[in-house]
Design a protein around this nucleic acid. Structure first.
Length: 436
RNA sequence: GUGGUCGUAGCUCAGCUGGUAGAGCACCGGGUUGUGGUCCCGGGGGUCGCGGGUUCAAGUCCCGUCGGUCACCCCA
């Protein structure tokens, strides 16, 4: 029986997932991010102090547990990869070289009510850079470029990375005279769901805003541009605040750098807020074209205060691809296809059981040259054996004989072949993943 | 965690106001005594998600539960 929120893919989907993970990993390493894996559990205190609501954390507990055990060493499954990473950095600061760039591709768990693209167990692929004391801003501009590179190499719809900066919002709200900037942010974040009228009402009733202040917040949130023009639009609103200026300069740098290096990838979108958690500056969200209503498939941001030990601080910036969400959505629309259901490229036909050692030798010769090969399970009629291959999408059937022949069962072409030298065309060597 | 909605064969679904289950595709076998895909013939498969209730009788009505999905919450 399936368990709600714990998806299990069939082999074709898993093959697509592994292909995607390979692309992600090689691209991350191309940018010099070092691999890291952290344990699945953290002390509950660590998880809860970083802004996650307790009801979403899964606890780790033995079946027979001493009820008197100390509550402060309770363990919970991590709900993202950034919090464990921050803990890891503080713990291993002496052994790491800063700035430290790492990637982490792991399962995370959240006790939510699942729906399409939302699971309780899912894969994230995360990159972060952390430094001691201060982290140069140019890393904030690098994150979307890495992700753009990953997505460009995948057979998926176009992705747009929406960027904002908390300093812009907070500075703007402060400059307007609003004190509870967090509450304003959280309310504005609901814009897409409840609409501008209700947001304005909420700002007035819960964040102490006047009608005019609420409208200014909405005007700010409505600004969106693929180039630096957003900055003028913000300034036109006539609000003045040093934090706002700082935020605008940062956001401008992200948008203009991306505009130069990856045109069309990044958009300033002043309404995105990223809930409440630990972000202090740049924030990212990513939309897949045609899947906008399912929300972000890749998010992150700048966190200056997440990792700290005593007087030492380790500011960081990171972004995380929601691999399971992205694939779940694409699978749901049948947007991805794989050319065969198994890795096998060649099926060796088996004339009779006496021929099996010879067939195994042919298979070994092909495998020795990197060609995925299996021998037919039983010496059925050749028609059946071809069908066996066809059902699985295996493109070639090899007939032992004098001489051996190999048949491309898609075209029907059958040619003489020598297991010591024959090669499939490059496009048939591995299953191909294509966009539908 | 709260609420809505759906759950019949591997898949897509039909089954009217309750009268003890069907189609197409898929799968297996044969026609085709060792080279598939077309065509023809035949076949296997369902505790109608699960449990309980109402009824002479429940796939069909009621309750619960599990699962999918949607909205809230939150977010990858």
């Amino acid at each position: 029986m399936p368990i709600s929120g714990f998806p299990e893919w069939l082999p074709p989907q898993r093959m697509i997932e592994q292909y995607v993970l390979d692309r992600i990993r090689t691209t991350f390493e191309l940018y010099g991010f070092a691999p890291l894996e952290t344990r699945a559990v953290e002390p509950v205190d660590t998880l809860l102090s970083k802004g996650e609501t307790s009801k979403e954390v899964y606890l780790l507990r033995r079946l027979q547990e001493d009820p008197d055990q100390k509550s402060d060493d309770n363990l919970g499954l991590h709900f993202d990869l950034t919090v464990p990473f921050a803990r890891f950095v503080v713990e291993n600061a002496g052994k790491l070289n800063f700035p430290f760039r790492r990637y982490q591709i792991q399962k995370v768990w959240r006790g939510e009510r699942p729906q399409e693209g939302r699971y309780r167990e899912f894969l994230q692929a995360d990159i972060d850079v952390v430094d001691r004391d201060t982290l140069p801003f140019h890393y904030d501009t690098e994150m979307p470029l890495v992700i753009g590179d990953v997505f460009r190499g995948l057979p998926i719809p176009r992705a747009t990375i929406l960027v904002n900066n908390r300093k812009v919002c907070e500075g703007f709200y402060r400059g307007l005279g609003l004190a509870d900037t967090d509450q304003v942010l959280r309310t504005v974040d609901k814009l897409d769901r409840i609409g501008p009228e209700k947001v304005a009402d909420l700002l007035i009733s819960t964040a102490g805003a006047s009608r005019r202040q609420a409208e200014a917040c909405l005007e700010l949130a409505s600004i969106s541009a693929g180039d630096g023009s957003f900055a003028d639009a913000v300034r036109k609103l006539g609000v003045d605040d040093p934090l706002l200026d700082e935020g605008l300069a940062e956001l401008l740098q992200v948008v203009e750098t991306a505009g130069r290096l990856a045109p069309g990838l990044v958009r300033a979108e002043l309404k995105i807020a990223r809930g409440l958690d630990y972000y202090t500056g740049t924030v990212y969200e990513t939309q897949l074209q045609g899947y906008e209503r399912y929300g972000s498939i890749c998010s992150g941001g700048r966190y200056d205060n997440l990792a700290a030990s005593g007087t030492e601080r380790f500011p960081g910036v990171g972004i995380s691809i929601g691999v399971s969400r992205m694939l779940g959505l694409l699978f749901g629309k049948n947007a991805l296809a794989v050319s065969r259901k198994v890795p096998t490229c060649v099926l060796i036909a088996l004339p009779d059981e006496e021929a099996r050692p010879g067939c195994d030798a042919i298979a070994a010769a092909l495998r020795g040259r990197g060609i995925s090969t299996e021998v037919a399970p039983v010496p059925a009629k050749f028609g059946k054996q071809i069908r066996f291959a066809e059902r699985r999408g295996i493109p070639y059937v090899w007939f032992p004989g004098e001489p051996d022949t190999v048949k491309d069962i898609r075209s029907g072409d059958q040619v003489e072949a020598d297991a010591a030298v024959w090669e499939p065309p490059a496009e048939d060597a591995r299953p191909r993943i294509t966009q539908q």
